[in-house]
């Protein structure tokens, strides 16, 4: 279980849903809030959202699976996102991603089997003038190079 998240609790989830369901088009708002609380959106939450918003389970499932951000399982204890879009590519992000994969012994887009770290590509953090860039547990890092990346990789495996 990643740090800073509550364990899944359907009563707590029901509270969150009840609080937000009156927003216009509330599905994404609720999915975000659930993920913020629990670190992911468990399968059990889908019918709860559907019932609250008078939608079918299929509709909510469809929304949940459409967006890259929503997780169906907890992420690693640390989440390292490497910007992989063109501006970072021009500044050498592909080589850095390969370096991260080899150091961590995993592939971009996975959570390592020991649950310590998730390594994910992100398509633009908007830090294109200080490329390449990354985000470790919500903290932004620009002007990434091999030395800075290595320090992040140590931190990400704690």
């Amino acid at each position: 279980m990643a740090l800073g998240y509550e364990a899944w609790d359907s009563e707590r989830a029901a509270e969150i849903i009840a609080e937000l369901k009156s927003h216009e088009g509330a599905t994404l708002v609720i999915l975000h809030a659930l993920q913020e609380a629990f670190g992911y959106v468990p399968q059990d939450a889908i019918p709860m959202i559907a019932l609250a918003l008078n939608l079918s389970r299929a509709e909510v499932h469809g929304v949940f699976t459409f967006y890259h951000d929503f997780r169906k399982a907890p992420a690693g204890r640390h989440v390292l996102k490497l910007c992989s879009a063109e501006a970072c590519q021009s500044a050498g992000s592909d080589a850095l991603a390969a370096r991260a994969e080899s150091t961590l012994g995993m592939t971009l887009g996975e959570t390592r089997a020991d649950g310590v770290v998730s390594l994910e590509p992100v398509y633009c953090l908007g830090l294109c003038a200080t490329a390449p860039s990354a985000m470790l547990d919500g903290r932004l890092i620009g002007r990434l190079d091999a030395t800075r990346l290595d320090a992040l990789l140590v931190e990400a495996q704690r």
């Binding site: 216009e24 088009g25 509330a26 599905t27 994404l28 708002v29 999915l31 975000h32 918003l53 509709e59 469809g62 929304v63 459409f66 967006y67 890259h68 951000d69 929503f70 992100v122 398509y123």
Partner: peptide, 22 residues
């Protein structure tokens, strides 16, 4: 707040997303 879908920068996809849809 969006959820990591590039297509939602297209204006009608953005409307769908604000409405809580794919």
């Amino acid at each position: 707040v969006g959820a990591g879908a590039y297509i939602c920068g297209e204006e009608t996809a953005m409307l769908e997303s604000i409405e809580g849809k794919r």
